[in-house]
């Protein structure tokens, strides 16, 4: 039973990734703009162009190119970046930790902030406080992440410069880590200077990404909490002497978290999509920033690698959401 579920899951994941690969491969080649033209200086001869085309295999048919590329991918070879002249896999995996740490921090901030506001809103339901929180979260939600980024740069980078506005870590700090997970490995190695500097660089982009999601969680979780608070088991808890706050936290929250979780999973993938622009804004050396460079330079192998990695990331997140859903809901546990 479980084995079958896992197998089906893996198969659908493989099909999804293959579909993404096909679409991206074709799109980047059909879209206007030519990587060879970007590489050569003005006044290059037709002979030079033809030579380079042959070197990178662009003279072959689309199907042939795809099969060659796919053959490499299956063996773990994602090709070589045209602009950076390094293996795509190496480049992409080197940047992945930065984006993972950023989006994880953003998710944690969003859940903490949104959860807190939702609980307060449910506690103060029917009062002016609830209306005020609703209006605030509505306003926060209507400002997109990159605009939050600009607002933060202005406030905490220019007017009151307390946070670092550019990069991932202070370049003066000597980092000899084996992985690029600066926070994770920094904590393990006790290098709090690295952790602190990374956090100071990450806080603004993470908050920019987190705020719209936090507002969404605040609204939805509050709604679900209010729904749970009309249920008989919460009434019974009140009769048994529990305070309203205790009833919310002990009885209602886990029930309300279930429907909220489904949305958070979907929205988290949007948040990761948002890293592309926000990382650019803060010159944060992550996958998203690299993706923009790759698109500008028409670095086809790199674009393909990044998109494929994002797609793989999304399917992993969906899997994790499903698993946590089963974990939180006892009715699904004994399938």
């Amino acid at each position: 039973m479980l084995l079958k579920t896992v197998f089906v899951r893996l198969l659908t994941t493989a099909i999804t990734l293959f579909g993404v690969a096909v679409v991206v491969f074709i799109l980047v080649r059909v879209a206007p703009g030519n990587p060879i033209a970007m590489m050569l200086p003005p006044g290059a001869t037709d002979q030079d162009i033809a030579t380079l085309n042959a070197v990178y295999g662009f003279d072959k048919s689309l199907a042939e190119q795809f099969i060659i590329w796919l053959g490499g991918v299956i063996q773990g070879d994602f090709g070589t970046s045209i602009t950076l002249r390094q293996p795509v896999a190496e480049l992409v995996l080197g940047r992945l930790p930065a984006t993972l740490e950023l989006s994880t921090l953003a998710l944690l901030l969003a859940v903490a902030l949104g959860g807190f506001v939702a609980v307060i809103g449910a506690r103060k339901r029917g009062t002016g406080t609830e209306v005020g929180l609703d209006l605030t979260s509505g306003a926060v939600l209507s400002v997109p992440d990159f605009l939050w980024g600009l607002i933060f740069v202005l406030v905490f980078g220019v007017l009151w410069p307390v946070l670092s506005i550019s990069g991932r870590v202070d370049p003066r700090i000597d980092i000899d880590f084996t992985t690029n997970f600066y926070i994770f490995e920094g904590l393990l190695r006790g290098r709090l200077d690295v952790v602190g500097s990374t956090l100071s660089h990450m806080l603004m982009p993470a908050m920019s990404l987190a705020l719209p999601l936090a507002a969404m969680i605040a609204q939805l979780l509050k709604q679900n909490l209010k729904e749970a608070l009309t249920q008989d088991y919460t009434t019974l808890a009140r009769v048994r002497g529990f305070s309203e706050t205790a009833v919310i936290l002990r009885e209602a929250l886990r029930n309300a978290a279930l429907p909220t979780l489904a949305l958070v999973g979907v929205q988290f993938t949007f948040l990761i999509g948002g890293t592309v622009i926000v990382e650019r804004l803060f010159a944060f050396e992550g996958l998203g920033n690299m993706a923009i460079d790759a698109v500008i330079n028409r670095d086809l192998p790199l674009i393909q690698g990044i998109v494929l990695l994002f797609a793989a990331l999304f399917t992993v997140i969906n899997l994790l959401v499903d698993l946590s859903y089963t974990f939180l809901n006892p009715r699904l546990r004994h399938g």
Binding site: D232, Y233, L258, L328, P330
Partner: peptide
């Protein structure tokens, strides 16, 4: 009220918290 009294509710299907 909690120390002196208790409630036997109408619907046993909804009166127990499903996730606890």
């Amino acid at each position: 009220v909690a120390k002196m009294s208790a409630l036997i509710p109408q619907d046993p299907l909804t009166a127990l918290n499903p996730v606890r």
